[in-house]
Amino acid sequence: MAQTEQLTVDRLDPDRIFDERMAGHERMAREALRAQVAKLERELSGLVAQTFPHISPRDAGSETFSGPRLLGLAELERLRDRLALRVGEVRGQVAERAALERRSRALLQRMKLEPGHYKFVRVPVADLGDGHCGVWEVRPRLGLIGMLAGWWHVKLSSGCP
């Protein structure tokens, strides 16, 4: 090592170099976390909008801060983890919702084919993912007469105000 280089190195405070390096690394880590938060937020927004109004965007477990501020590494990590968990929960709810709609559509199909086997069974339109109002129901034609004669059919009641 040349004399001038040796002098330069000697003058630098190793603790300060270490601190600056650590600060740089931490800043990069925070940037990476913010990018992950952005991705998760967009995914969450997409899922909530796609399944509206069946899934609430509210997250009861979210951490609240007192007003806007710069988040530290640990806070960003907690935020990222919480959002990731929330996205997972919402994905699960979306899958459950899709399964419910599939089952409801299949049941309605069977009700239409053999109404006599599904007497008074009701399928809300909301469960089919087609809207919010109305209920499909297997009812007897002509009331009591239909009930005694075994004349059943599927009717859609509007149900909306």
Binding site: R34, V37, A38, E41, R42, P57, R58, D59, S62, E63, T64, F65, G67, P68, R69, L70, L71, E75, L79, L83
Partner: peptide
């Protein structure tokens, strides 16, 4: 996204 970055929950 920015609200998330500054510690605000945009759904609240």
């Amino acid at each position: 996204v920015f609200f998330r970055h500054i510690g605000l929950d945009p759904d609240i």
